[in-house]
Nucleic acid binder design. Structure first.
Length: 293
DNA sequence: CACTTGACCTGTCCGC
DNA sequence: TGCGGACAGGTCAAGT
C-alpha cells in the first residue's frame, strides 16, 4: 500500500521517464476517479508537455506546460506503470520480462496517457485512488494540501517540530497521531509500526505519557525507516509496483510488519498482531510493553 | 472540540 | 467446489 517511500519510488521512476513527453491522447473510464470536465482535459491535458514530477505527502504532482498539473493519489492499490512501445519488440509478445504486471491495459486500468512512443497506465484494483487535473498555481489552495503536515524527510524537520506537533494530540494513541496526515505527511501503517517498534513504544501509548527521550528516538527511527524503504524501492505487499512494474524489497527488511507469529528479531518473543486506530498493528509485546492507560 | 469509527471498493483467503 | 464473511488500509464524512 503506497505510503511515502512507495510514492517517492514512483516519483523517481517517473522523473526519469516523463519530462519532455507530450500527451497525445488520453483514455479513462470511471469518472469518479478522474472527475475533470472533458473540456478541461481537451484544453489543458491533450498536447501538453510534461515538465516535472514532484511529490507532496502521498500525492504525485505531474507538472504540465499548460500551467496545469495532474495530481495522482494511489491510495491502497493504485499503480502507475510506464510502457514503451519498444518493449514488445524487445521482449516479444506480452509484457517486458522485468515487469510483474501483465499485458496492459488490464481490467484494473482506469486511465491511460498516450505519448505516441509510450504510454502511462494508471491501474487501481479497488478504485480508491484518483487523478485530478488542476491549475498548478492552485495546488497550495487545495483542501488536501492546506491541511497536510510537514514532510518528514525535509532537512528542516527536526525532533523539536515533531514533538511539538505530536504534543497537540496528548490524549490520542501515538499510532493514531502518526497516521494523521495533518500532523506529519506520508506515514502509513507499515512505517508507523516499524518506527514504533524501533523506538520501543507501544502503539496504544498516549502521546502525553511518552518520554521526550523516546519521542526523540521515534523521530530518528521514523526518518531511518522511511529512508531505508526508499533505498529498497518501497514495500510490496500485494499490489504495489514501481513504474517498471517491479516490486519493492523493503518488507524483507521489516522487523514486525506482517511478522505476527514469528520471533522478534531483537528478543525472540513472538510478535503479535493487535488492532489500533482501526488498523492491523504489529508489536513485540516484550520490547513494546503495554501502557497502563 | 477531540477523538473514533464507518464508508468507499474489490480481490484474496479461510472455514464450512 | 462453492459460498459467505472477514480482511487489507488511505482518507474523508459521520458519529460519539
Amino acid at each position: 500500500m503506497p505510503e511515502l517511500p512507495e510514492v517517492e519510488t514512483v516519483r523517481i521512476g517517473l522523473a526519469e521517464l516523463l519530462p519532455g513527453k507530450i500527451i497525445k491522447s488520453e483514455w479513462h473510464d470511471w469518472p469518479k476517479g478522474f472527475p475533470n470536465a472533458d473540456s478541461d482535459v481537451q484544453q489543458f491535458l491533450i498536447g501538453a508537455k510534461i515538465l516535472e514530477v514532484k511529490r507532496r505527502a502521498k500525492v504525485l504532482i505531474i507538472e504540465l506546460s499548460t500551467k496545469y498539473s495532474l495530481l495522482v493519489h494511489l491510495k491502497m492499490t493504485g499503480q502507475l506503470v510506464f510502457r514503451s512501445n519498444d518493449d514488445k519488440k524487445r521482449f516479444g509478445a506480452g509484457h517486458p520480462s522485468h515487469s510483474l504486471v501483465g499485458d496492459l491495459p488490464d481490467k484494473s486500468t482506469r486511465v491511460i496517457l498516450d505519448f505516441g512512443d509510450s504510454k502511462l497506465f494508471f491501474n487501481d484494483q479497488r478504485k480508491f485512488g484518483w487523478i485530478r487535473l488542476v491549475p498548478t498555481a492552485e495546488i497550495p489552495n487545495i483542501d488536501f494540501f492546506k491541511k497536510i503536515g510537514p514532510e518528514p524527510l525535509a532537512d528542516d524537520f527536526k525532533a523539536k517540530d515533531f514533538i511539538e506537533r505530536l504534543s497537540k494530540r496528548p490524549n490520542s494513541s501515538i499510532k493514531a497521531v502518526l497516521l494523521d496526515q495533518s500532523v506529519i505527511a506520508g506515514v502509513g501503517n507499515i512505517y508507523a509500526d516499524e518506527s514504533l517498534f524501533a523506538a520501543k513504544i507501544h502503539p496504544l501509548s498516549k502521546v502525553q505519557n511518552i518520554s521526550k527521550a523516546k519521542l526523540i528516538k521515534l523521530h530518528e527511527e521514523l526518518i531511518k525507516v522511511l529512508k531505508l524503504s526508499i533505498e529498497k524501492g518501497g514495500s510490496s505487499d500485494r499490489n504495489y509496483v514501481d513504474v517498471q512494474g517491479r516490486r519493492g524489497s523493503y518488507l524483507g527488511f521489516a522487523q514486525v510488519f506482517r511478522k505476527n507469529g514469528q520471533p522478534c528479531p531483537r528478543c525472540g518473543t513472538i510478535i503479535e498482531k493487535i488492532r489500533v486506530a482501526g488498523r492491523g498493528t504489529h508489536i513485540c509485546p516484550h520490547c513494546q510493553p503495554k501502557p497502563k492507560v
